[in-house]
Design a protein around this nucleic acid. Structure first.
Length: 585
DNA sequence: GGATCTAGCGCC
DNA sequence: AAACGGCGCTAAATCC
């Protein structure tokens, strides 16, 4: 394997006319693998322009296409090259594909993304995944990135051209060495799963979500008003309750309810025995102390009203959040600017995310996917059987734990069972279960009851108990610092992981793998339906679909999601719930 | 004065 | 013996 690349003699050819483009593309078309990089006038594909497209292949000079010099109509050879069946190697291809797509230069796979490859390889560890870091680590080449943010809009210097050429050329040896590492670590399937999802994610970001700004303004004003009322109540209570503490000025006037430190000190000074002001500490005390009730009300009204309006794009009028495919150690997506994965479920709030005129929002959720994965991984007979029979696992758990017949399970029983199911599969203790059930599901229980429920849960689902034991003895107990999903996605730890983390990754990570496969399949299948992928929230996929296409697209969506899950969970049945609405709410 | 950390909380 | 995991955002607190 030839991994040497002397950056000082990377050859390149600057292409500024149609004829040179055609001949350069002809040579490059013979390559099985090409490295592609782009230079742009900025970071926003909607407002900044694509200036250069650099394409490298082994033993050829890097072709640098100057898009400022060649009319769009003459780019056909480039289009052909981008859509041939060679492997296209990118570094953070989401960025390049977004700009190519906006320049009406579509490309097709197969793709290899060196950044995603590195992230898959080192998931869980603190590593840098920049191109310079990878070049240094794997090729012992120190890239000079001084020109990365230089002005690529005007006349280009030789230094800029050389920089551009090197960034494309280096992708080829990097792809080789990363492939070898992925193969050795048995991570090729996971990496390819990421590569196939990558163009879908790029398109998802470009599509964005439409926010009804009028509606949102009304909702956020309403939230703000509620917050003011709560703050006022809080202030009055504080002043009254602390009036006798006039020697301590910070408690006499008002305490900033936003400051956990001040709130903690203030509450402690009133003799309330707490060591934290978080929800789970305060909720049990709320009935006893009006001030705590007021504080909780204040926080509730404070519901993160992220600066959504600031994220509405001036050109498209839509919100284009950034999804990071390997943003979470488990393989889940993370999302930011804004984080659309933690928008409150409150209908009033989610209803502000709407479909364009003539479109519908199609929202699809996997049903209890993490519990199903747990059933599969543990092999628990009772859970597997319940799912095979199409039963509702929460109701079953409620019945098994309370001893009531299935027909006698109330809504509260089922909420209790949800808390038990979701809490205990990752090994929650009784004390935490008690608090968790109350704060998340509004179900009260004594510590003794929590202990009993916990004991019963592991009795009735003994396969889950055995699965915990197995991980405890073969991984946790031996100090192993890595674990994998069903599909082989690996997460590693710098230090000894907690048992709960080891139990969680195979479940949460498998769920992420399934969603990513579904998104990749969907992207390939939606084709000319006009439906657009606009968001994903872990086990949920959101599409915006032309009204007349809703029926076929719903079927496609369901089929893609079910077949993605079947890749790992077959023959366990999986459920997908599809809703067609005017909005996300 | 800006960068980073912490607590708390929204979502799955 | 006891232990639920994964994120990003905001404001306050703290560090440099």
């Amino acid at each position: 394997m030839n991994l040497t690349l002397n950056t000082s003699d990377v050859q390149y050819q600057l292409v500024q006319d149609a004829q040179s483009l055609e001949s350069a593309c002809q040579s490059l078309a013979t390559a099985k693998v090409i490295g592609i990089d782009t230079e742009t006038t900025g970071l926003d594909p909607r407002t900044h322009r694509l200036r250069l497209v650099q394409i490298a292949a082994e033993k050829m000079p890097v072709m640098i296409v100057d898009l400022a010099a060649i009319p769009i109509a003459k780019l056909k050879p480039l289009r052909q090259l981008l859509t041939n069946d060679s492997t296209k190697v990118f570094h953070n291809g989401k960025f390049d594909l977004s700009f190519l797509s906006m320049a009406n230069l579509q490309s097709t796979g197969p793709y290899f993304d060196t950044q995603l490859a590195s992230q898959v390889l080192f998931a869980g560890l603190k590593k840098s995944h920049t191109l310079a870091a990878l070049a240094s680590k794997f090729l012992k080449i120190e890239l000079n990135k001084d020109l990365q943010n230089s002005d690529f809009s005007g006349k280009l210097s030789n230094d800029q051209l050389e920089y551009a050429a090197i960034d494309a050329a280096i992708l080829l040896p990097l792809q080789k060495v990363l492939s070898a590492h992925l193969k050795r670590a048995q991570l090729l399937p996971t990496a390819f799963l990421e590569f196939e999802a990558m163009p879908a994610v790029a398109q998802m970001e470009l599509n964005g979500m439409l926010l009804d700004q009028q509606k949102w303004l009304a909702v956020s004003l309403d939230l703000e008003a509620k917050k003011q009322v709560a703050a006022l109540q809080l202030k009055e209570l504080k002043i009254r309750h602390s009036s006798q503490l006039s020697l301590l000025p910070e408690y006499t006037d008002c305490v900033n309810p936003e400051s956990p430190q001040q709130v903690l000190a203030a509450l402690q000074s009133k003799g309330i025995p707490i060591d934290s002001t978080n929800k789970k500490t305060l909720i049990p005390l709320a009935s006893q102390y009006p001030i705590i009730r007021a504080l909780l009300d204040y926080r509730k009204s404070k519901i993160t009203s992220p600066s959504l309006l600031e994220h509405v794009h001036p050109v498209t009028g839509r919100i284009h959040a950034q999804y990071r495919q390997c943003g979470a150690r488990s393989g889940r997506f993370s999302c930011r600017s804004p984080n659309l994965q933690n928008i409150p479920r409150d209908k009033a709030i989610r209803s502000c995310f709407v479909a364009s005129p003539g479109y519908k929002i199609i929202k699809a959720d996997y049903s209890q996917i993490e519990l199903r994965i747990t059933a599969f991984l543990s092999g628990d007979r009772r859970m597997l059987k319940a799912y095979q029979q199409g039963r509702d696992l929460h109701t079953l758990t409620a019945s098994l734990i309370t001893g009531k017949p299935l027909s006698g399970i109330t809504a509260e029983d089922r909420r209790l069972a949800k808390a038990i199911n979701f809490g205990l599969i990752y090994g929650m203790g009784a004390a935490k279960l008690q608090v968790y059930a109350e704060t998340e599901y509004g179900v009260m229980m004594t510590l003794e009851e929590a202990q009993l429920f916990r004991k019963r849960f592991f009795q009735v689902y003994s396969g889950v108990a055995k699965w915990h034991d197995r991980i405890r003895s073969t991984v946790y107990g031996r100090g192993v610092r890595e674990i994998r999903t069903i599909g082989g996605r690996r997460r590693r730890w710098e230090n000894k992981p907690r048992l709960s983390e080891l139990l969680n990754h195979p479940v949460q990570g498998t769920s992420a793998d399934i969603t990513k496969i579904a998104i990749a399949k969907l992207f390939k299948t939606l084709g000319k339906t006009g439906a657009k992928l606009i968001g994903t929230v872990h086990d949920e996929i959101l599409l915006e679909c032309p009204e007349e296409q809703v029926a076929p697209v719903s079927r496609i969506l369901q089929k893609c999601m079910l077949s993605a899950a079947a890749q790992f969970l077959n023959p366990l049945p999986v459920g997908v719930e599809i809703q067609v609405q005017e909005s996300w709410g």
